[in-house]
Amino acid sequence: MEKLMMKGSEAIAEAAVRAGCRLFFGYPITPQNEIPEYMSRRLFEVGGQFVQAESEVAASNMIYGAAAVGARVMTSSSSPGISLKQEGLSYCAGSELPVVVVNIMRGGPGLGGIQPSQSDYWQSTKPGHGDWHPLVLAPSTIQEAADLVMDAFDLADEYRNPVMILGYGLIGQMMEPVAFREYQPREFDKSWTTCGCKGRPPNIVNSLYLDPNILEEHNHAIFQKYERMKREEVRFETFRMDDARFCLAAYGTVARICKTAIAQLRDEGIKVGLIRPITLFPFPEAVFREARVRWILDIEMSMGQMIEDVRLAVRGRTPVHFYGRVGGVVPTPDEIVRKVREMYKEGVK
C-alpha cells in the first residue's frame, strides 16, 4: 500500500470518500475547515455532492435527510458547532439513521479557544437531548483516524445510529504517513429508507412517539443496540500493562504523549502501563476493572471528563487520580513523568 503524507483532516475526508461517502454537509469552524475544503473539491470528482450549509443546525438536518434516503453521508465540526449539531444528531438517533460525524474538538466553554482540547468527551459520549449515545471512536494517529473512519460508516449502517470520530487539532492539523486500506463494501438492509413507495406501503422516518408506552418500547429497542455495541464493538489498546503496577488512562494523542513518558519512567524502574480506550462509547470497562494495579492516573486535556467512566468501570476497587491540562495546553511527556514520579515517591495509594 502506498503511503501518503497527509493532514489528519484530509485523511479523514479521503477515507470517507473511499468508504463510499458521496455527500457532505458542513459549516466552517476552526480547526476542522480542511475537511469541508477537501470534500468540496473531492466529492464532485466522484459524482457526489457537497453543500456548505447555512449553519451547523442545518448541516445536521441535511445529513438526516440524506441518510433517510439511504446515502452514506458525513458532516464535521468543532465543539461549539457540535453543540448546534446535537439537534440533528438526536433526531438521527431517534429515527435510527446511520450518519458519521467528525468532531475536531477545541477548548471551551463558550467560544473557548481553537487549540487542542478534549473538553467534548461529555457532549460526545453523553450527548444532547434524549436517551441516546453515538458510537464514539477516538484515533491517536492519522493512520488510525483513516482506518476508523472507514469502520465508522459500516458501524453506522450496522447499528443505524450516529457514529462520531473524536479528534482535535493534534489529529486534524497534524501530518503523518497514511496507507488507505482497500475498502470492502458490505451489504446493509436499506428496506426502511424513504426512496419512494413503489410496490410497497409507504415508509416513515420519524422520531415522534406520542404514546408513552410506545416511546418507552422504542427507547428500549435503541438501548438494546447499545448493549450489543458493548458486547461486540469495544476497542482499546494496552501498552506495557503485562507487569504494570500503575496504569495511565488516556485517549487520542494524549495516549501517545503518555507512551513517551512511560518509556522514560520505565528507565527509572517505575512499572507503569497504559490503557487507551479507542471506543469511548461503548467504554472499555472490563479492561480497567481487570487491571491489577495500585492506582490509575487518568490524563486528559479537560478538567476530568473520561475519569467518570474510568471510576464507574473500576467500581471503587482501584483509586483513580487525575492530571489534566485545559484551554488548549497540551501536556508534555515531562510533566507526566514528573506527576507519576511524585505519586510514586509519595507512595500514593
Partner: peptide, 22 residues
C-alpha cells in the same frame, strides 16, 4: 407516500439532504 419527520423549522435542510442524495 414515503414521509420523513423533520425537527422544528429544518424541513428545507432535510429536503436538501434528500434531493442532493436522490
Amino acid at each position: 407516500c414515503d414521509m420523513v419527520e423533520a425537527s422544528h423549522g429544518r424541513a428545507p435542510a432535510v429536503a436538501t439532504g434528500i434531493k442532493r442524495a436522490r
